[in-house]
Design a protein around this nucleic acid. Structure first.
Lengths: 147, 147
DNA sequence: TGGTATTTCTTTGAAGGTCAAATTTATTTT
DNA sequence: AAAATAAATTTGACCTTCAAAGAAATACCA
């Protein structure tokens, strides 16, 4: 009972504030004008080879129309480059600029820190249990989404 | 290494999709026009005695201007009632309507289901470990917010 | 008491993010 | 070549948010 209560409180806080929390982590001096959405799009573009709009939109689960607007923002801020494909001139390829890659790595560090914080003072055995619980959570979300 | 990787993937998904996930859970036939934000405000108003705008805004971490707009939406949808206080006529008291209370309980069930899903196949000992990890996460967020 | 300050809430203006539907441009199919 | 399909952008509408300004009521104090 006690634990269910604690879990519930944590989830409520998490759901309610997750955007704000992440936003605060992102908006340091250097990345003052980078929004959470910008950062999510940066993550989805990634540091590999350029991707077309449809692929990125699909990964993010947004329409391409929405992604167009997001990428406009990134390009305006100098975080991403947008190039028409030579093979198929309908296709637009997006990739991170130098500055974008830097932002990507910065955000990766935030994730790493978060994971370290969660793992803090957990033994290997305990980590395995945590993983199991989180996989349950993931499955719950997948099932919910499929409903 | 393996576990860190899994955790990272789960967190990325969680951060990116948490709103969508919750939205999908909320928007069943009966609550088609209830947004995630509506639901968060409903949670903050709660089923106890009426609350004034400032208190609810503070709990949600938004400005009172924002809350005014949110409450407009709830009132328009018949989910909340808004009454001027008799003691202090500057104060506006908001409370859930019958329909609002019903929505509140509906969302509570979503939380319960989620927690059940996470707890699935965890022993009591394992639950304690999960709680420990989530408290770490909570502390991390609190520290980040305070920075 | 009467005027100033403070408090509570709402309004306004601006900016992001989102979608569905319409449009444009390019490629594929027939 | 014409029609169908595909990729991306544009448009119009809605929701959420904030900061700043405004309105109304209460508190303070001289």
């Amino acid at each position: 009972m006690e634990i269910e209560q604690t879990l519930n409180e944590i989830f409520v806080k998490l759901f309610r504030n997750i955007n704000t929390i992440e936003e605060q982590a992102i908006r340091t001096e250097e990345y003052k004008n980078v929004t959470t959405n910008d950062m999510h799009v940066i993550e989805a573009i990634g540091i590999g080879s350029p991707k077309n709009m449809t692929a990125v939109a699909k990964e993010l689960g947004v329409t391409t129309g929405t992604l167009t607007i997001s990428v406009n923002s990134l390009v305006k801020k100098g975080l991403a480059d947008r190039v028409r494909s030579e093979e198929d001139r309908r296709v637009v390829l997006v990739s991170l600029s130098k500055k974008g890659v830097k932002a990507f790595r910065h955000h990766q560090r935030f994730h790493e820190e978060m994971i370290e914080a969660v793992m803090e003072r957990l033994t290997e055995e305990e980590k395995v249990i945590l993983e199991k619980a989180l996989k349950n959570l993931n499955r719950f979300f997948r099932d919910k989404a499929a409903e």
